[in-house]
Simulated assay, not measured.
Amino acid sequence: MKSHLYHIVLSCIGLALCACVDQINLELEAGQSNVVVFGWITDEAVPYEIKLSWSNGYSDQSGYLPVSEAKVYVTDQSGTQYDFVEIATSGRYQSDPSVFVGQPGGIYQLTIHHGQSIYQSAKEELPPLSPVQDVFVDFVADPADFNVKPEDENFFVSAFVEDDVILENYYRWKVYVNNELRNKPEELVLFDDQFTNGNKFKYDASNVLFTAADQAQIQHMSLSKGAFEYYINIKEQTSSSALTPRIQPGIIKGNMSNPNNDNELVLGYFGASAVATIQVGK
């Protein structure tokens, strides 16, 4: 459908260039709504949240409607079930941190019952987290070589990672600037140990820039291979860099499905991470 729509748009541009007088009205299909799931658990003793909503059709401007009144729970490798309770009718379901805290090495699976439908994630491991050392603020160029104005965004977070020699490690840094998460697709900080396995290596979050006056902190997170690839796909499809042009747009499939209906597309991802939150000094 997207490819078809793309060709329609190109045709319309050509017609508009040839004849700018006639008005062309297109009737597009409304499209189908799909369940969108996003949830993450960590090894922090905090409430975890699962968000459920409906995707929009092409012509639907009503916003993302919540999927309410669902039964939502996570099970671990021993079969223990942890229930998530909806906040009002928001489509946001939260766990009780006094009952459920994720454990590194644990295997978790999300299950959702809504009406007659069942949605389930693949089993997701909460990977152990290799530590970081010497977290600091670096700069794009030496400020001593030229006049850096206070409003110039020339600074970014760097750190040394003590990578685990046994495991394949995948990492994400959430960078907060003045307590605000920098979370645009081009600001996703993702890296792995493909060429640095078992070594201490330096990584630069040089795609998230801020000024000398800003305060920064990072959440150093472990990812499964599936979660890493999911975020890489998001970043690649939304990149606007001239050096890394966008790939052909397409549906980004996560790890959710309807076990009773292989043909139903379920969007989103359920993941698990170990987390270390670090205040960055200058």
Rank of each mutant, 00 (worst) to 15 (best):
M1L: 14
H7Y: 12
L10I: 12
C12M: 08
C12K: 03
L17W: 03
V21I: 14
I24V: 15
N25A: 13
E27Y: 11
A30Q: 13
A30N: 13
N34K: 09
V36H: 10
V37D: 07
G39K: 07
T42G: 06
V46W: 01
S53I: 08
D60I: 09
D60S: 12
G63P: 11
S68P: 03
V72D: 08
D76L: 06
D83Y: 03
I87C: 01
R92A: 05
P97T: 04
S98L: 02
G102T: 02
P104Y: 00
P104T: 04
G106N: 00
Q116L: 09
E125P: 12
S130T: 10
S130M: 03
F136S: 02
A141W: 05
A141D: 03
A144G: 02
F146E: 01
N147T: 13
N147F: 00
P150I: 05
E151R: 01
F155W: 03
E162K: 14
V165Y: 09
I166P: 00
L167Q: 11
E168N: 13
N169K: 04
W173Y: 06
N178H: 08
V189I: 11
F191I: 06
K200A: 11
A205H: 03
N207T: 08
V208I: 11
F210I: 07
D214H: 01
A216P: 09
Q217D: 01
Q219L: 04
K225E: 10
E229I: 10
I232K: 07
E236D: 10
T238I: 05
R246D: 13
I247K: 13
P249S: 15
K253E: 09
K253A: 14
N255F: 03
N255V: 14
P259F: 02
L267Q: 08
F270G: 11
G271V: 07
A272K: 01
A274P: 03
A274M: 06
Q279T: 11
K282G: 02
